[in-house]
């Protein structure tokens, strides 16, 4: 079937891209002008210790062998050891990755629920106050530095109104009184599974501000994108024909037109997903969120390149897969795609 062929082709392409990406990440990380051996053993180590460290870190091998060894380890779940903390990176990742993912997923939900309907309404009520409000709202969101928005939200809700906590994922009291059993690493899921509702509420309170801040850019983008494609779709003859058949506004806008407009919007969403993962870095700094972002930024500033490579790799893998997801989704929704 043509569609299955198309999907397989896209998968292969994604795989190739991943290989290319891993090579580049590896090369860049190696470009870091520092001496990982010195970092590992300390400035006063003896030559033998340094040599031993070199061998242990695999730095005595030619570059391509280092790369292969690294990739082999990665694929078996071993991301190496932090040069600074000597801890296996995979342990850190198990904590930090879900933290960031939870944030990003919640913010994507906000984006879908707020951004797309506003875009549709904006196009449907083009040139009315609804449209103008949406567009201004969208432009502001798209132009706002996310870390600044995070600060402002903190200023308003934490300092002024004292409604929400200042940072972190969970309050100290809850951590002591109703600790969370880590199953998936997603606090909302873990607390719900355990029926630990006080912790669930607490986790939610911690999640709200950072995810709203993170969602802002994507919301603005999806309003603009949805509006633009909807406006174009609404001018098509098949929409006029739908009006001529007496179909209701709800049917025309949200069933017929939206399906045609959704693909470019989803593509934008996948791009903004990536942006949100990297934007999460900035939000995490402001909200003291123990996620990949803070992990990465600290690693960069302390030149702990095994961490940098690992995080970069993971984030990019997500990016590639989300692009793939959108391509596949497009193939599923649009019957004409596989013919290309």
């Amino acid at each position: 079937m043509a569609k299955a062929e198309y999907i397989i082709r896209r998968l292969l392409l994604a795989f190739l891209v991943l290989v290319g990406v891993s090579i580049i990440t590896f090369v860049i990380a190696r470009m870091v002008p520092s001496d990982p051996v010195a970092l590992y053993v300390g400035p006063r180590a003896k030559p033998e210790a340094r040599e031993a460290a070199r061998v242990k870190l695999g730095l005595d091998r030619p570059l391509h062998q280092q790369y292969l060894r690294y990739m082999g380890e990665v694929l078996s779940g071993d991301f190496g050891i932090s040069v600074r903390s000597r801890r296996p990176i995979i342990d850190d990742l198990k904590v930090f990755l879900p933290a960031t993912l939870e944030l990003v997923l919640l913010s994507m939900i906000f984006t879908l629920v707020i951004g797309i309907p506003l875009g549709v309404l904006s196009a449907a009520f083009k040139d009315t106050w609804v449209d103008h409000f949406s567009r201004i709202f969208a432009v502001i969101n798209v132009s706002m530095p996310v870390f600044w928005l995070a600060l402002l939200l903190q200023l308003l809700f934490v300092r002024q109104l004292d409604l929400l906590p200042v940072g972190g994922r969970i309050s100290r009291d809850i951590a002591i009184l109703s600790p969370i059993e880590p199953v998936t690493g997603f606090y909302l899921v873990d607390t719900a599974l355990a029926g630990n509702w006080s912790a669930f509420r607490d986790a939610l309170r911690h999640l709200i501000l950072p995810s709203i801040a993170l969602a802002s850019y994507a919301i603005g983008l999806s309003i603009r994108m949805t509006r633009a494609t909807m406006v174009e779709v609404l001018q098509q003859k098949y929409i006029t024909a739908a009006w001529a058949a007496g179909l209701t506004r709800r049917t025309v806008y949200f069933k017929l037109a939206l399906k045609n407009a959704i693909v470019p919007t989803l593509m934008v969403l996948s791009l903004s997903f990536v942006w949100q993962v990297s934007g999460a870095m900035l939000v995490e700094i402001v909200f003291l969120w123990p996620g990949l972002g803070t992990y990465l930024v600290n690693a960069i500033l302390t030149i702990d390149f095994p961490i940098v490579v690992s995080v970069a790799l993971i984030v990019t893998v997500f990016y590639v897969f989300s692009n793939l997801f959108v391509d596949v989704l497009q193939a599923v929704i649009d019957p004409r795609v596989s013919l290309e």
Binding site: G20, V274, W275, S278, M281, I300, N323
Partner: peptide, 24 residues
């Protein structure tokens, strides 16, 4: 285009931070 695609498969901010950190 392959080179372009590979550059595009990195999240921009992340890549910028990584290169920036590498260069100083």
């Amino acid at each position: 285009m392959r080179i372009t695609d590979i550059f595009l498969s990195f999240p921009a901010l992340l890549l910028a931070i990584a290169i920036s950190a590498a260069l100083g």
